[in-house]
Design a binder for these strands. Structure first.
Lengths: 216, 216
DNA sequence: TAAAAAATAAGGCATTTGTCGTATTGATTA
DNA sequence: TAATCAATACGACAAATGCCTTATTTTTTA
């Protein structure tokens, strides 16, 4: 069984180098690359049959942290390994918070990269030693590390997410209906369904739970 | 003439270290310490013949930012130097807003601390270089210094803030009433007043605006 | 101490929301 | 192709909310 890999990387030389590293192993199948976070997400929209994403951090249009957040909320099954030159606390912490599964520095050699990809697929959290040290330090600092594990991923439809976002802005049923050009009845029905999925009974709770689960 | 110093610090080891630093100089007279902001204010109530307060930020019961606000309003003559491990924008900005006269990091050595205390007494604004840099950046970035400034500070009473916090948790009128042990009618009236102050017309908007203005 | 602000409480009424049930249509999937 | 899902839409009813008025008691401030 081969693992399907996607890459987000703005520097085409580095991207090429990474792809070449991957090509040495026939259990790794490079699928596509995005030149920035947004592009990657756009391509995932078309094909999200991907096992692992190698994600750069600093990219134009959309950085890797933001992209990780979005990918993780939309496709929780995809493993994400940050592959970057930045090893500062801020980035590490944000990447972890965004849901990254691993954090590697770009100097990594092909052999190790291969090993780390396998490791992340097996539920591990591969990272280079220096990063591992920093993560420990971050953990010692009781900053808020959100452990919203895969307790039970709540799945909302696109329309439900739309409506939830409008709800969270403080709009009422009629305003939402106007915005989405559907009838208030439909808005009500959607909200009813959202409440059932989130197991809540009013707007505020719905928004709170949705934010907690990063659904909006 | 000796300067009278008070300290607010929850970690007794750190407090001890600071007091020892002060003891090296005979123009500094350590008066008392509070284990948190509230305690300090309590002790100031008894004796506010103090020139400088060295204030920690993160403390139980009452944090240093809140304490600074209160001390500054009750005893404007007292100079306050934040002495903390936190150098994030948020804290720096809030401390400044609260009226802090200086902002130092805890690693500071005795000599420097002494110098900074004299500096603040002479109307200066002592801060460690890294903090000074961040303050500059904060000033450059006008997005953080938003409308919550002198535009027109919305003032909620304590009770209104209580209720708003409950609202933001998704509780309904009866639940809030139960929690605060008041009648639902009173809760309604408070919420009505909150809406008027924030110029909103429902819970969600109230919470959104309150968060934007950091009222909760 | 007098005045102002804050906290408490109730009644009434229109509007909005939460929860049912039911139903049609197009798209996706097994 | 049959079944399921997603999106659309209405009606009805109870509960909750928003908005107005009035009023008493504490607490704070001038």
């Amino acid at each position: 069984m081969t693992l399907k890999i996607a890459i987000a990387e703005d520097n085409s030389f580095l991207a090429k180098a990474v792809i070449e590293k991957l090509s040495f192993f026939n259990d790794l199948d490079f699928k596509f690359k995005g030149n920035n976070g947004a592009e990657l997400i756009g391509k995932l929209e078309v094909n999200h049959n991907i096992d692992v994403i190698l994600m750069d951090i600093q990219m134009p249009e959309m950085d890797g942290i933001t992209a990780t957040e979005i990918v993780k909320s939309k496709y929780p099954h995809i493993k994400i390994i940050m592959l970057t030159v930045f090893d500062d606390d801020e980035n590490i912490f944000n990447a972890i918070k965004a849901g990254a599964n691993g954090y590697l520095l770009k100097e990594i050699d092909a052999e190790n990269l291969h090993k780390c990809i396998l490791e992340v697929i097996n539920g591990g959290a591969p990272m280079t030693p220096s990063i591992a040290l920093k993560t420990l330090n971050l953990l010692r600092n009781p900053l808020i590390i959100d452990n919203s594990e895969e307790v039970e991923k709540i799945k909302l439809t696109n329309r439900e997410t739309d409506i939830l976002e409008h709800l969270s802005k403080g709009l009422n049923y009629n305003e939402i209906a106007d915005n989405l050009i559907i009838s208030p009845s439909t808005v009500r029905k959607h909200i009813e369904n959202i409440y059932k999925k989130l197991q809540v009974h009013n707007k505020m709770e719905a928004v709170l739970i949705a934010q907690k689960h990063k659904l909006i």
